[in-house]
Design a protein around this nucleic acid. Structure first.
Lengths: 211, 211
DNA sequence: CATTTTATTGAACATGTTGTTGATTATCGA
DNA sequence: TCGATAATCAACAACATGTTCAATAAAATG
């Protein structure tokens, strides 16, 4: 399953192109970027670009796949029951913290992708990863015979929560990653479990009580 | 403040180009679109395009401005107190319904912009409009001396809620606008006021109770 | 270290897009 | 009907594209 681009030269080239892409996207947005600009900025021969990528979008997508792959792996380690237990103790769930650390490690690229010059399809895929977990959680908490009686359609509930958490991520990056992954994880946990209003701490709420 | 492009010819041209843009963006995404494709699809001379727009992005942005302008006008008619009163009666707030009707009227363009081939900067500006209102609401509900004691930083709270609602919008469009604006407005109201968990209707919650 | 393998370079090519221009035609508003 | 103006058409140089090939540089290997 795993390929070997072990040659240091290709590694160097790809790093340079990735960096150049991030820079140029932050400056102009994806639409205005040309292969010529890209290779000039990266100080790489234009022909070399085509040895690795079909076009600018292909470059972008290959980087995305890399990040999303790792993200998906870490996501698989989430156990919904552990998450709920952590939430009850008002502690950040460790698996979530590790995911946020991954985000932080790729802050340059990820911050770009989630920002105004980013890629909506990337954001949608991130939401998709999240929704799989939320679906589990929901099915876990709600007995099947009651699934149809929700006050809000399940699909909208899931769309709401996943989008909300991506919003938290976006704000984290947009404001320069001032919080630690632990802090952000705690913020997310509180908002999901007790809802935005109750999370002000100013009104009472039943919160997450198991039936 | 208001210009007059009254000539039917320019109106026709702009309509055609807008339609062609939506079609091509849905097919290829913004990056791959060329002025040549655009004018060919719209059956308009290429030179004519440059009489109205600087480039493809300029075309996109002019349409965005139009929509965002109307959106902002309708947004100004929101009164936070009315909104909260409607929420307590579990009814959709009329001003929100009108806004959703505007979205629906421009479904082709708006659905595109909020979707996988859309424009993140547009989405951010929509969130921005929403955040202004949320800021009002928050300041309204919470006495100034308590603003620093929130369990979750205010900025994150706002990012969470605005992003969540845009997520609802996105799901509405992505699933083909099957609900009426009234229904969507009600979904939003419930989710904001009682939080995602309580909105399942399966756990009790204090909900929106004024201090 | 020497050798083989492979990535990168630089130049050239036809092709297509761009943004602009000037002359012409068609359509609009009055 | 008629003057104004928008749309068309053809042509332009400048630039980006995607591909090629020989030459060169730097890797991996024994």
């Amino acid at each position: 399953m795993k390929e070997k681009p072990v040659d240091r030269r290709t590694l160097r080239t790809k790093k340079l192109l990735r960096q150049a892409l991030v820079e140029l996207m932050e400056e102009h947005g994806l639409e205005r970027i040309t292969v010529s600009q890209l290779t000039e900025r990266a100080d790489v021969n234009r022909g070399t670009f085509y040895l690795h990528y079909k076009d600018v979008i292909d470059l972008l997508q290959q980087i995305q796949e890399e990040v999303l792959g790792k993200l998906s792996e870490l996501g698989d380690e989430i156990d919904v029951r552990d998450l709920m237990r952590a939430a009850e103790r008002d502690e950040p769930y460790q698996a979530i913290v590790r995911i946020l650390e991954l985000w932080q490690r790729n802050a340059d690229f990820c911050g770009l992708m989630l920002g105004p010059r980013g890629d909506p399809s990337f954001v949608l895929r991130v939401k998709g990863l999240m929704q799989a977990k939320l679906f589990d959680k929901l099915s876990d908490m709600i007995p099947p015979e009651q699934q149809d009686k929700l006050q809000v359609p399940r699909e909208y509930l899931i769309a709401f929560v996943s989008s909300a958490n991506v919003g938290v991520l976006q704000h984290w990056f947009a404001s320069g990653c001032r919080q630690t992954p632990r802090e952000v994880a705690l913020i997310m946990t509180r908002l999901i479990n007790y809802g935005p209003l109750a999370s002000t701490g100013l009104v009472k709420s039943g919160g997450s009580s198991k039936p």
